[in-house]
Design a protein around this nucleic acid. Sequence first.
DNA 1: AGAGCTTGTATGCATTTGCAAACGGATTGG
DNA 2: CCAATCCGTTTGCAAATGCATACAAGCTCT
Lengths: 146, 146
Amino acid sequence: MELPKVGSIGEYIREQRTQAKISLRQLAAQAGVSFPYLSQVERGVRKPSAEILNQIAKGLRISSQALYVQAGLIDERQPDSDVLAAIRADVTITGRQRQVLLDIYESFRKENQAAETEGAQPTQPAEPLDAASLNGHATSEGYNLP
Amino acid sequence: MELPKVGSIGEYIREQRTQAKISLRQLAAQAGVSFPYLSQVERGVRKPSAEILNQIAKGLRISSQALYVQAGLIDERQPDSDVLAAIRADVTITGRQRQVLLDIYESFRKENQAAETEGAQPTQPAEPLDAASLNGHATSEGYNLP
DNA sequence: AGAGCTTGTATGCATTTGCAAACGGATTGG
DNA sequence: CCAATCCGTTTGCAAATGCATACAAGCTCT
């Protein structure tokens, strides 16, 4: 019951391989994996690790990420927001900074959504983004918002 | 320059975890993996599979792809989505909110860069994110919202 | 002083990966 | 006709993953 609903990774690989008109052994050689193992992978008997997947993708000349998505290793759920995805993917900031940015951005979104559904009543949110919630979550006791 | 010089994936995970100020067990619980194994992963004793990596990324609230890149499982350089561009392109926030996010993000970047070039203690900034720098840097008087 | 709680780490064990070798089945050709 | 190759599959087996359990060090109470 754990098996993915559709298009197991193996079928996808085999499809790509047959479409490329190369044999199992050839692909295995090009990918640098053993052909028996590739056979098992294609039939779903074995579940390959990411490294093997990466090598197979290289041998197939397709993008690794396409395979990862097929394998369900990347939640390619629609990026709920480009900003969120970008912040999460950013490696130049620390985890805490990331957390702060995510919190602030989400509070912005929430505030705007509330204002939308309720109607044009901008005077109401006397404290739309309260520092307390942020402080409670993040350790930094900054964010004093006049 | 793009890729931060990181020895192993484990160090990166531990760095992100400690910066997020959560314990090993907490992250393990959030990620759905056992804490002893997570310990071994962080110290490089074990090499986690992609699924575990994915769960860790989820528990760590960072993008899976960032971890895959760190682990060397994705060598194709996909332009790690630019946070600044994403914020500028976002239409669900107001102009002032946008300005706030941009300011904060850039101050983070500047702070990290200063810490990098200057100090040889990247992991031990007693208060890397201090509210004073934010407020002092803020051009507009206060981040008051709509 | 201890009990009680947390933190991270070492150990034993089922399960799995991934490979090398051996196996049947088609096709070709000498 | 039956070697000579191709093809893909099956079969053991070393090595690794990943977990549950048990362990040692640190902190806070009363």
